[in-house]
């Protein structure tokens, strides 16, 4: 493995993976950094076995997702990714640094069904593109766009009623 290759891979994905973790630990930066380090350490160990036929985004996303679930599973209380957010985070109010309005938005996202909340986070909080999300979710970009429009409409309705 060349240092340059891994460095390039790291630079390309670190911000997004950090965001992925950050929004699952309720904005706890210290925890997000720890988990990001763990994820990239795992990626480093597996880097020589990486199959270029799989997209890099999908590969590192799988590592990140599995690691988050495994961390929660250590306590043997829950393994669902949606529940992990509340397990790994102590308290949104304690660690978040945002206004009341943004708190409403985040709470509304958490109220969505888990798969829909995941899509909103991937697209609007972590900055994934539709074609990258398609690789992860095994759905087409077109189907994701349709689904996202419905989700965002639902989100807006939730915010109106809050």
């Amino acid at each position: 493995m060349k240092r340059r290759d891994f460095a390039r891979f790291y630079e390309k994905h670190v911000d997004r993976i950090y965001k992925f973790v950050y929004f699952r630990v309720a904005g706890n930066r210290e925890r997000a950094e720890d988990l990001t380090q763990d994820i990239f350490t795992k990626a480093l160990k597996a880097f020589d076995r990486y199959d270029p036929k799989i997209s890099e985004s999908a590969w590192i996303y799988t590592i990140a997702r599995n690691h988050i679930i495994n961390e929660a599973a250590k306590t043997k209380e829950m393994t669902d990714l949606a529940d992990v957010e509340f397990k790994l985070a102590s308290d949104w109010d304690e660690h978040a640094e945002r206004s009341f309005d943004r708190n409403r938005v985040l709470t509304a996202i958490e109220d969505l069904p888990p798969d829909e909340a995941d899509l909103v986070r991937l697209k609007y909080l972590e900055g994934w593109r539709y074609h990258e999300m398609a690789e992860i979710t095994q759905k087409t970009s077109g189907a994701l766009r349709v689904q996202m429009t419905r989700i965002l409409k639902k989100l807006k309705e939730k915010l109106k009623h809050k």
Binding site: A7, Y124, E126
Partner: peptide, 24 residues
């Protein structure tokens, strides 16, 4: 709001650099 949240979620540059050095 979502975009502002996204911007807030950037890793600290010092952490980013240190982790890269550590891994490489």
């Amino acid at each position: 709001h979502l975009k502002k949240l996204q911007k807030r979620a950037k890793p600290d540059p010092g952490f980013r650099r240190a982790l890269k050095r550590h891994l490489v």
